[in-house]
Design a protein around this nucleic acid. Sequence first.
DNA 1: AAGCCGCGCAACCGCGCTCGT
DNA 2: AACGAGCGCGGTTGCGCGGCT
Length: 264
Amino acid sequence: MMGMTSWEVRAAEQGWRKGPWTPEEDKLLNEYVNLHGEGRWSSVAKSAGLNRSGKSCRLRWVNYLRPGLKKGQITPQEEGIIIELHALWGNKWSTIARYLPGRTDNEIKNYWRTHFKKREKSSHKQEKRKAQLLKQKQQQENMSRVSSHADTDKLLKVTDQENHENQQNTVTMHPSASTVEDHYSPVMHHHDNNTIASNWSSDQYCVVDEGLWGGLWNLDDHDPRNDHVDANHINKIITMQNQATGFTFGGDSNNFYNTGGYIF
DNA sequence: AAGCCGCGCAACCGCGCTCGT
DNA sequence: AACGAGCGCGGTTGCGCGGCT
């Protein structure tokens, strides 16, 4: 056990190899799946001569070895789709991944966390700052009702202005609206009249966060009622993307929808 | 040059669902 | 109907690397 990392120790204790895959392991898994197909992952591990759990094999195949996987950065078009679908479904990464050919749920999940969570953080910071200032003001009021509050007021005004400016770039999204378009449509509701999703700046995305409505949007993608709604909405997203960029994501949105995003 | 820090991403873990027996 | 194995999903962890001090 000397010189082993913590995961190596744990893996040794449980009998399975863990941690990063070697090229040799990749080769074994690749050859086996190409010959016998996907599924039966626990037997894949044994039959292919891999000392890996079935889970580990499946994950490696799905996220890394599977043919047709897109390598490289998420494009602005894909980012737009991720944002839209996340607003619609919340953290349903595998569902979202179905509409992004060649991308995995893991990849999308990581992308969201690294690119959008930090913006959420910065908006939380701003909230904290305002709360702190309010607290300060209240303390000052308590300590001396006679003294002037001009400086604090000024600070608060600046913060309010910052917030107001932020709201100008906020996408309206409210669950009490009556249709999907009313619920969430950046095209309809975007305040600064810039109606093309792909032209949004990264800062404009920042308030579309799960902290506000994400939890309310865990629609079941297998509910036929939602299928109807989703198909319409996704149709719109694709149209928007195409209009914005001239990039053709798919000629027929129904086909796009029905094939799980795989359009050839 | 060296240490520290934050980010990106691959991989693991726990839980819940499905399906076969 | 009950149970267990297999699988999929979402959340979390930890490593490697590049940038900063």
